[in-house]
Design a protein around this nucleic acid. Structure first.
Length: 274
DNA sequence: ATATAGGCCTGACAGC
DNA sequence: TGCTGTCAGGCCTATA
């Protein structure tokens, strides 16, 4: 379940595999459900002869800038994987889309759940105006992400603090695992209403969001269930998780609580998190 | 207007 | 053993 650290790790691996500078020869689509605003044919026409100029991210979206400012956007959702593989390498199960590049290189999008998404945009204006992108807020590693920013972003909502923090229109990149970690590190219960969170707690949340995401990036992401950024690139942050999925609180050693917050499995400590 | 529930999707797993 | 039901969760859409 890729969140920001996993997305950044995937991009790093793609760059390490020298994807930038390669061009698309053709595209094979095995599951067109992933194509949200194109067909196999139009995607193929869109990408043919386009060169990868840069790979960035907007929240959890992976953004490929191509020649002539065309843009390819991929979201991995829970199980999606992007592997750069030599043309000779045998395809694994769950291959949804195979991008054939020059130099016997392929970029393969595997997704056992078919939840991933692919969008294409003719230019930067259409990308910026698109419904998926324009609602994505800055992420915690952005220099503009400050306590004041967060307080201001949440001033018109009064949902649970956990729900507000994983809402990508408030702050992007945080998902269900890291939000539990951030709130635990900040001693704030995920069930607190936004309006009841105090300024000093927002300071902690802001600081811990930056710290935890940076640490996770340094570890190459979290490998829970099946996340791999590429073949043999496995993150290690799961070894540093303090609360998510844990039975015992590492601080007070009492049993953790498990509940649902807006449908999301939530682990917290009702003694340490107020 | 915001808040929340349901749906997408399929593998893993628990219970019978 | 093999079936059925439930859960996982990012994001979208429908409903309250």
């Amino acid at each position: 379940m890729p969140e920001l650290p996993e997305v950044i790790t995937v991009i790093k691996v793609l760059k390490d595999e020298d994807l930038i500078g390669k061009h698309f020869v053709s595209v094979n689509v095995y599951n067109s459900k992933l194509l949200k605003n194109s067909t196999p044919k139009s995607l193929n026409n869109f990408l043919k002869n386009e060169t990868v100029k840069d790979i960035q991210h907007k929240g959890k979206y992976i953004v490929f800038t191509l020649s002539k400012n065309k843009i390819l956007v991929i979201h991995l959702r829970m199980e999606g994987k992007l592997f750069v593989e030599h043309s000779n390498i045998e395809e694994k199960k769950y291959l949804c889309v195979k991008f054939i590049l020059n130099n016997n290189t392929t970029l393969r999008f595997y997704d056992s759940r078919m939840f991933g998404t692919i969008h294409i945009f003719d230019n930067l204006e259409k990308y910026n105006d698109s419904s998926i992108i324009k609602k994505i807020a800055i992420d915690p590693l952005d220099k503009n992400f400050t306590t004041m920013y967060l307080i201001n972003a949440l001033k018109n909502t009064n949902t649970y603090i956990k729900t507000a923090l994983i809402d990508q229109s408030n702050v992007s990149g945080i998902g269900n695992i890291y939000v539990d970690e951030i709130l635990f590190a900040s001693f704030v219960s995920p069930l607190r209403r936004v309006k009841n969170v105090k300024p000093n707690e927002y300071i902690l949340i802001t600081k811990n969001a930056k710290k935890i995401l940076k640490d996770a990036i340094a570890c190459g992401g979290t490998t829970i269930s099946t996340f791999e950024s590429s073949n043999n690139h496995i993150g290690s942050y799961q070894n540093k998780l303090k609360i998510h999925g844990k039975k015992i609180c590492p601080i007070c050693k009492r049993k953790t609580a498990f509940t649902k917050v807006n449908g999301r499995g939530t682990t917290y400590c009702k003694y340490c998190q107020k």
